[in-house]
């Protein structure tokens, strides 16, 4: 699943942008230094290949529904981590710019979610040890499937964490996770199957291609220490973003932490979903409903939130003003649009 601008807070989006831009710069340096200039056209054309492959749908076995290739794992296997990351990033950028998948700010998140995990986790830590040196159909199948599943699980986790941390969507962490992870387990399995099928096909037809990329020294080898260091950096950066978020709305974070540790459920297990939702509402609601029921329009609501002042006042007077003003603005926009349209016709 792609993240969208609409779900992102600037803090989270900005952090992910910085993280992704840093990784792109790093990979660009690596690929440039690699001296294998065959990779440059290869990356470009393989990126385009992903688009072409994505328009061919297949039937998912035993379900009758159809799916298409994601491609992260295939690129990592064919190009090695650094070149593959740049390629995935380029595919997502074109999707964001032309097909409105996600958006500009969310691009950082999307590249991170769909690029980092297959290239820097699944490929070096799963696929390479299993099927890197001496591939066989079974090894390719296990490596690719496991790799795809892990990459997509982590990607889904990324989406959930980014969405919840942003706090635009009211989706709470745990239910969101419990939906996203199983769905992406299924998607990951299918992606694994497809990756296996395509990679095996290439391996049977032209084994030297896989050997070439697997043997490529500078790209193939990835130091475990570097990966861990990278993860540390990611953790610190994410932590920074979280604390930024935390400072502006402590409740949200406190609540997520609460949910993650599961202590809340332990306290009141018999209360069930309704209670959970109620707690959630209580915890997430920046404007508790008694504020509304007081129906004292001119007085601001009692709330300790630092941002309250910029939030819409819950008094019917303001609501009406906002509505009237909003409608007026919309009308202006429409009028302007019509004006341009007429001008375009007459020109």
């Amino acid at each position: 699943m792609h993240m969208a601008d609409a779900l992102l807070s600037p803090a989270v989006g900005g952090t992910m942008w910085v993280a992704t831009a840093g990784t792109i710069a790093h990979c660009a340096k690596k690929v440039q230094r690699d001296l294998d200039d065959r990779k440059i056209p290869l990356m470009g054309v393989l990126g385009a290949f992903i688009f072409a492959a994505q328009m061919i749908n297949f039937t998912i076995p035993a379900t009758g529904s159809s799916g298409h290739l994601g491609g992260g794992m295939i690129l990592a296997i064919l190009l090695g981590p650094y070149a593959a990351f740049l390629t995935i990033a380029s595919v997502l950028t074109v999707q964001a710019l032309f097909f409105a998948d996600g958006g500009l700010l969310a691009l950082g998140c999307n590249i991170f979610n769909l690029g980092i995990f297959p290239c820097f986790i699944s490929y070096p830590l799963i696929y390479k040890p299993i099927a890197g040196r001496r591939p066989s159909p079974t090894k390719i199948a296990i490596g690719a499937t496991l790799g795809a599943v892990v990459a997509l699980q982590l990607g889904a986790l990324g989406v959930v964490v980014e969405t919840v941390t942003s706090g635009i969507s009211s989706l709470p962490l745990k239910p969101f996770l419990s939906v996203m992870l199983p769905i992406h387990l299924a998607i990951g399995l299918v992606e694994g199957l497809v990756t296996t099928a395509v990679v095996s096909f290439v391996w049977k037809a032209r084994p030297e291609i896989l050997e070439l990329t697997a043997a490529a020294k500078p790209l193939g080898a990835l130091n475990l220490r570097n990966v861990l260091a990278g993860l540390m950096v990611a953790a610190v950066v994410t932590g920074g973003a979280l604390s930024w978020f935390a400072s502006s709305s402590p409740d949200g974070l406190e609540w997520s932490m609460f949910k993650v540790t599961g202590s809340e459920e332990l306290d009141a297990p018999e209360e069930g979903v309704h209670h959970t939702l109620a707690t959630l509402q209580e915890k997430t609601a920046f404007l508790p409903d008694y504020g509304f029921k007081q129906s004292s329009p001119t007085e601001s609501i009692e709330n300790s939130e630092p941002e309250t002042s910029s939030w819409p006042m819950i008094d019917s007077g303001t609501s009406t003003s906002g509505l009237v003003g909003g409608i007026l603005t919309l009308m202006m926009a429409a009028a302007l649009g019509l004006l341009f349209k007429r001008r375009a016709h007459t020109v």
């Binding site: 290949f49 297949f58 039937t59 497809v194 099928a197 096909f201 290439v202 032209r206």
Partner: peptide, 27 residues
């Protein structure tokens, strides 16, 4: 209308091989 996984992998694999050849020619 649907494409079985096997046919799919052949189609896409074929496309991939052509793509790799093309990359070589471009290079």
């Amino acid at each position: 209308r649907g494409l079985s996984m096997k046919t799919f992998s052949h189609l896409v694999g074929q496309l991939l091989l052509r793509t790799l050849d093309r990359a070589q020619r471009i290079h």
